[in-house]
Every structure is written in C-alpha cells, then in structure tokens.
Simulated scan of single mutants.
Amino acid sequence: MNIIYLTDLLGTGVFAISGTLAALNKNKSHDVLALFIFAFVTAVGGGTLRDVIIQAYPVAWISDANYLTVITLGVVIAIACRRWWLGILHRPLLLFDTLGIGIFTIMGLEKALNAGVNTWAAVLLGIVSALFGGVIRDTLANEVPLVFERQLYATPCLTGAVAYVLLLPLGLHPTLVFLLAVGVITGFRLLAIRKRWALPAVRA
C-alpha cells in the first residue's frame, strides 16, 4: 500500500469520527446504524461527488471494502472514546473535522490534477472533496452547515490548496508539499476558531 492510499484511508477515518461526534453532539440517543450513516456521508460524500464530476469510476468506497471498514472502525473509536475526548479536548468535533478537511482538500486536489483537470478547477474540486460531506452531515443533524456560516471554513481550504499549487513547481518533495499544505489548512482553521475570525457580511 502506498502513502497516498494510506493517507486517504486516514482522512476517511478522521472524517468518520467527525461525523459520529457530530451526531452525538446533536442527539445522544442515536442508534448505531444512525451513527454509521452520519460517519459514512461525512467520510465519502465529498469524495464521491468529486469522482462523479471527474468521472473517476468506480468510486473508491465501492471498489475497495477497506474504506467501509475504516468508517466502521471510526464509528467504534468515536463511541468508545467520546467521554475521554470530551474530558481532555475542547470540542473534539472541531479538531477531527479540521484534520479531515485538511487531508481531504489536498487529496481531492491531487486526484483532480491526476485526472487532467485544469489547476483552478482542481482547487475547487479539492474544496468540494473536503466540505461536501460535512454539508450533508450538518443537514442531517438539522444544523446550518459550517460552510454557510460566517466563520472561516472554506477559506482555510482555499488557502491551503493555493499554497499546494504554488509550492509544487518549486521542486520540493511531493510529500513535503502535501504536509505543508495540510498544515496551512489545519493551522489556519484552528487559529480562526480560536480568534473567531470571520469574513465581512454582505447585506442587501
């Protein structure tokens, strides 16, 4: 198994944990099947839309059962450790969600570029890969999706994706560029949460 594949599985697991925690945060009485659905749509929703757009068939989770296994493990880990996380971390949902969007933005961008998509369309598809699963998750949880709120959510993804595109031609090792871009997204997002940064509102 190569590093790209393992990273994709890691991102899937992180997003599965995020989706499960989102469901538990909204309603503590969800059954296990409902939690799996939250985890599933969070983990593969954005990537599935990206693959449909670029016609990358079959979609990864359909052809490779390891993705469903990782999602299931993510649900189990989130349920088993939820009280421990809540005891030592401030809002663990945001932490796992931030890690997920960082990994999946750049993974989605790379996959789009490898499919021959032009650079800036690939940037947008990377953002779709990272955020669309969360949109479905928040909609199912009867919440306003984070991407539609004023807090900086899509902006860190865009910043990291652009950083990746600009750094890649400089001759740096691709793994280093990947890690730097993911670091830009996660660091920017966590700092924006801490500082409560938001884009200016546009009013009618």
Rank of each mutant, 00 (worst) to 15 (best):
A181P: 02
T155I: 14
F36I: 15
G116E: 03
C157F: 03
T105P: 06
R196C: 06
T105I: 05
I37S: 02
D8Y: 04
R150F: 10
G47W: 01
I88Q: 11
L86E: 15
T69A: 10
S63P: 06
V117G: 08
V184L: 12
G11N: 08
G108N: 06
L191C: 14
L180S: 08
L168I: 09
G19V: 03
D97M: 05
D97F: 01
R91H: 13
T175G: 09
G87Y: 11
L168H: 13
G45N: 03
V70L: 04
Y67P: 02
R91T: 12
R150D: 11
L152V: 05
F15Y: 13
D64L: 02
A16Y: 12
A80G: 10
Y57M: 13
A141W: 05
V14Q: 04
N2P: 10
G19C: 14
I88H: 14
V165W: 01
R189V: 05
A80N: 14
L21R: 02
A112R: 01
H173M: 05
N27H: 12
R83A: 10
T20P: 12
L131M: 12
I88E: 10
I101N: 01
V135S: 12
I54M: 06
G13D: 07
I136Q: 02
A198C: 07
A78T: 08
V41Q: 03
G46E: 02
P169G: 07
E143L: 15
G160A: 07
L131Q: 07
T98W: 00
A60T: 13
D138T: 10
L166C: 13
I193S: 07
T72H: 02
R189D: 06
L89P: 04
V14C: 06
L33E: 11
F40S: 01
A16H: 10
A161V: 05
L180Y: 05
M1H: 12
T72L: 14
A122I: 01
S29Q: 13
F36D: 00
S18P: 09
R194Q: 14
L10D: 04
G87C: 04
L140S: 02
V75H: 01
I127L: 14
L21W: 09
S63N: 11
S129L: 05
P145N: 08
A121S: 14
A163I: 10
R137V: 02
T139G: 13
A23C: 10
R203W: 11
L33V: 15
H173E: 14
S18L: 11
L152N: 03
N66E: 09
L172H: 11
D97H: 06
L35D: 02
V70E: 01
V32C: 09
G134T: 08
L24D: 03
H173D: 15
V75D: 00
